[in-house]
Computed example of a mutant assay.
Amino acid sequence: MINANKTLSLAIMSGKGGVGKTNLSLNLSYALNTGGNSLLLMDCDLGLANLDVLLGISPESNMQDLLTSGAKPSDIVIPIEQGKKFDILPAASGVPELVEMDEDMQDLLFSKITELVGGYQYLVLDLGAGINGTVLSFAAMTQMRIVVITPEPTSLTDSYALIKVLHSQHNVSDFNIVVNQATNEKEARETFNRLNMACEKFLNIKLKNMGYVRYDPAVTEAVRRQIPFIKYAPKSEASRDILNIAVKIQKIRMENMGRLSERPVMKKFPTLDD
């Protein structure tokens, strides 16, 4: 692993699908890169990849090639913003064996990308929804975690289950919450409070509120046009909200530079609170 690490690894996940997690991952990555930060976005929704769809690109190779054909990470990485060092590592769609990666395959993957990720200030993992083994392992290995929720009761229930399993099986206790598709700040705050109260009462975990992204018609239109909404409508409410979250993450990274230098980018339980 890399010494004197300066890369913050961030897993973005959700208890259920349909909450806008991948779209949020993409646009948050754009927001972080806009601030002059180099960033690698990994599509870790293995088997059901769709970051390429949101970007309107068709990768010639993907993570499956990295694991099975001896391809180098540099052969697979796709530059998204020329001159800004914002790159994507695409995953594969319709490959069931990648969904439940065993420990040996996980070790192989991260041994191959270790040297690559050290060249970025941020490593963002867009994880699959739910609580399969690969999602849990990747989430436990990152230094920071964001759980994306919506005001829907099913989202809260499934997100609580995700947090509970990560806490009980992987000893993870620090979680950052982003409320997506909120009508307003009041609804976002109430949604966060409901999940936080349940986690405090039953898991003895206090969640961190990273902010919210309001429901915005510009987001839907941007998806249809296969353009990140922060580029399609930079002055929209959703874009302003995502920039606010990016500022908080940047502050966390700067405040923890000393701790980052003492640990690798990916490791079992390398939380910033360790």
Rank of each mutant, 00 (worst) to 15 (best):
R214H: 10
K201L: 02
M210E: 08
F202I: 03
R224T: 08
F192C: 11
F202A: 07
M197G: 13
F192M: 10
A222R: 08
N193C: 10
R189Y: 14
R189D: 14
M197D: 15
A218Y: 04
G211L: 06
F192P: 04
F192I: 04
C199M: 05
E190M: 09
A222S: 12
G211Y: 00
E190D: 10
M197I: 14
R225F: 13
N196K: 07
T191M: 04
V223S: 12
R224L: 14
R224P: 11
V219N: 00
N196S: 12
R225L: 14
E190G: 05
F202T: 02
D216G: 15
R225M: 13
Y215G: 13
V219Y: 01
K206L: 01
L203P: 00
R189P: 12
M197Q: 15
R225W: 08
N193S: 14
F192S: 12
R224W: 10
L203G: 02
K201Y: 09
A222P: 12
Y215V: 09
Y212V: 04
R225E: 14
L203A: 02
T220K: 13
E221K: 06
C199H: 07
N193R: 14
L195V: 11
F192E: 06
Y215Q: 13
Y212T: 05
M197R: 15
L203H: 02
V213M: 11
L207Y: 04
N196Q: 06
V213A: 04
M197L: 15
V223L: 10
R214D: 03
C199Y: 00
A198P: 01
R194H: 13
T191A: 07
M210W: 10
N209E: 07
V213H: 01
A198K: 11
T191Q: 03
P217K: 07
C199W: 08
V213W: 03
V219F: 02
F202W: 06
L207D: 09
G211A: 10
K208S: 00
P217H: 08
N193H: 14
T191I: 09
T220D: 05
L207C: 09
A198F: 00
M197E: 15
L195T: 07
A222E: 03
